[in-house]
């Protein structure tokens, strides 16, 4: 069984972003980029399935500018087998990403597509569900446990009230939550090896997908900041202040 893992290049989770002065978006020039943390977890899960003999090949896909190849190389260094870069400039919305992935799924025929539950830049939390809908496949989103057994995958999901477990017939779509696993670091020898692994390039046109954005981003602004308040000297003073403020 092949597994496809889509990975997105995003601003590093430790960076505090800034909105551009002209409200046209977020400043991305010279900002440190990294693989979306949920996608690292997706790569790790695919690797573990392969190591357990449940998968034969792991194909990493990224949609983005030429620089997204770096993110694919990171996944290859972790242990994925080959990469596909779908070269697209500018904004590619989740619906378009899902359509591009569907076209790649048609070519590769994987048993499982494992995505991140959300990308930490746009926080849309859509792509996996959309892909599942377009393929008419079942989905197990926000996964904290994934068990493949024969033609089924059992997914334990983090939901508002706790945990929910579903059983899906393969092929299926899974999206990862934070507690699914701890992703490994790539070792230096593996980083060297990754440079020789195959990385194909394609385009939305070649895949027959119109990736034109549907939504218009009118403007982007900074949220109104919160002022730091006061320091209190003791727990008793704190309780007094809260009573005066009428919140307790």
């Amino acid at each position: 069984m092949k597994i496809i893992v889509p990975v997105k290049r995003v601003v590093d989770a430790n960076i505090k972003i800034r909105v551009k002065a002209d409200a046209s978006g977020v400043e991305l020039a010279n900002v440190k980029m990294a693989m979306n943390p949920f996608d690292e977890i997706a790569v790790e899960e695919a690797l573990r399935l392969k190591e357990a003999g449940k998968a034969s090949e792991i194909i990493v896909v990224s949609v983005g500018a030429a620089s997204a190849a770096e993110t694919i190389r990171t996944a290859l260094a972790m242990g994925a087998d080959r990469g596909i870069l779908v070269k697209a400039e500018g904004r590619v919305e989740p619906l378009a990403v899902a359509k591009l992935l569907k076209a790649i799924v048609a070519r590769e025929e994987p048993g499982l597509v494992i995505l991140g539950k959300q990308a930490i830049d746009d926080d849309s939390n859509q792509t996996g569900q959309m892909l599942a809908a377009l393929l008419d496949w079942p989905q197990g989103t926000f996964a904290s446990k994934v068990a493949v057994d024969g033609g089924q995958v059992e997914v334990t999901r983090e939901v508002d009230g706790g945990l929910q477990t579903v059983s899906l017939a393969l092929p299926a779509v899974v999206t990862t939550d934070l507690r699914l696993n701890e992703p490994r670091y790539a070792s230096l020898p593996n980083i060297m090896k990754a440079k020789k692994k195959p990385l194909d390039e394609t385009t939305p046109e070649a895949l027959g997908v119109d990736a034109t954005p549907r939504l218009e981003i009118v403007s982007t602004r900074e949220p109104s900041g919160r002022q730091a308040g006061i320091k209190v000297a003791s727990a008793a003073e704190l309780v007094q202040k809260l009573k005066t403020a009428g919140v307790i």
């Binding site: 972003i17 981003i217 009118v218 982007t220």
Partner: peptide, 13 residues
């Protein structure tokens, strides 16, 4: 909100 609420985006459909 985008970027964990560090920016707010106005979108039109």
């Amino acid at each position: 909100p985008i970027y964990a609420g560090n920016a707010l985006e106005t979108v039109r459909s």
